[in-house]
């Protein structure tokens, strides 16, 4: 799956990617996330510095792709291409190859992380305009998106720790710039949306949750796919059993095609396979639901209900 991050410069994209990878190494309850050796070493080194409050990863100056694998016993691993673009690419013209590439990546994305810097959202008069500038890029990428899989669409409001005790009071101002967009996403049948208030660093907050929430959508999609397959197998079996007459068997034999019984046996095998695959998926789905339960329901604008996010140590 392709996760694409979208946000202005210094919105915290690279920092979040680093913090999420580092936090997942320390919280392998549901998934183990792994990367290639070099990327792993680099992310762990930056993650340690970040967690200790000794600095931030350098901002991206070009597109970079991080290849991760999310593994869990009993289910097929999820291969993740996590794409980090420099912030400027979001507001550059297409002559800048990186802007074009960002648009292409968004069009092919299976999950989107949209970033807003909390300090900027509440302290800068242009913050609404800055978020508005990103909206057409998303509309262009996802307008009339077909297909059956669900696109998780997460808004990450970063650096909320910098707001200290004022967070509760400032919460409406933090979420307001995203209201129109979240409303649009919420109407789309192919998308799920929610926002997260995130802090990376020593007072980490909601770092693994966006990733787990994306994985929840992946697992839900897999479950749906298996149930769809199961329904199709049962329908085929029902038809073939009803048609199974001596004459039909004879015709199949003469024409050299599988008999109804053979088809039923094949479909039965498929159904047994689907059921076997569903059990561990349901277990993971339950665990994910439990891990994300503290986030609460989502308000119509995608903000967390009551606005209360529980701090999760990384």
């Amino acid at each position: 799956m392709k996760i694409v991050m979208l946000g202005h410069s210094n919105a915290g994209k690279t920092t979040y990617l680093t913090a999420a990878y580092y936090a997942m190494q320390h919280d392998p309850r549901i998934f183990q996330i792994s990367a290639g050796r070099r990327d792993h070493r680099r992310l762990m080194r930056s993650g340690r510095v970040l967690a200790a409050g000794r600095g931030y990863p350098p901002p991206s100056d070009a597109r970079s792709v991080h290849e991760f694998v999310a593994s869990r016993d009993g289910i097929d691993p999820v291969e993740i291409s996590w794409i980090d673009h420099r912030g400027g690419a979001a507001v550059a013209k297409t002559a800048d190859g990186q802007a074009r590439r960002l648009q292409e990546d968004l069009s092919a994305a299976d999950a989107v992380l949209l970033f807003g810097d909390a300090e900027r959202l509440v302290g800068h008069t242009h913050s609404q305009r800055e978020i508005d500038t990103l909206v057409p890029m998303l509309l262009r990428a996802f307008g009339d998106r077909g297909g059956s899989s669900t696109i998780p669409f997460a808004v990450l409001i970063t650096k909320v720790d910098a707001l200290g005790d004022a967070l509760d009071e400032l919460r409406p101002a933090l979420h307001r710039p995203f209201t129109a967009l979240m409303d649009g996403v919420r109407r789309a049948e192919w998308a799920v949306a929610r926002s997260f208030e995130v802090a990376c660093g020593p007072s980490a907050r909601n770092v693994v949750e966006p990733l787990l929430w994306i994985m929840q959508a992946v697992i839900d999609d897999r479950i749906d796919t298996h149930y769809t397959g199961l329904d199709a197998s049962l329908a085929t079996m029902r038809t073939k059993v009803a048609e199974d007459k001596v004459s039909a068997r004879f015709r199949a034999h003469v024409n050299g095609v599988p008999t109804g019984q053979a088809i039923v046996r094949g479909e039965l095998e498929k159904a047994i396979g689907a059921l076997a695959a569903l059990r561990p998926l349901h277990t993971v789905a339950r665990e994910l639901a439990a891990a994300l339960a503290h986030l609460g329901a989502v308000e119509p604008d995608g903000a967390p209900e009551g606005g209360q996010h529980q701090a999760v140590p990384s």
Binding site: K93, R100, V135, M137, L139, R140, A180, L181, D183, G184
Partner: peptide, 27 residues
């Protein structure tokens, strides 16, 4: 500028990203 930001769930966007950048720069 008004409709590209969304209004009551309705949006307008320029097909061409460069047009969008020109219009938002002018705004």
């Amino acid at each position: 500028a008004t409709l590209s930001a969304g209004l009551r769930g309705y949006f307008v966007y320029a097909q061409d990203q460069d047009d969008h950048i020109d219009l938002t720069d002018a705004w």
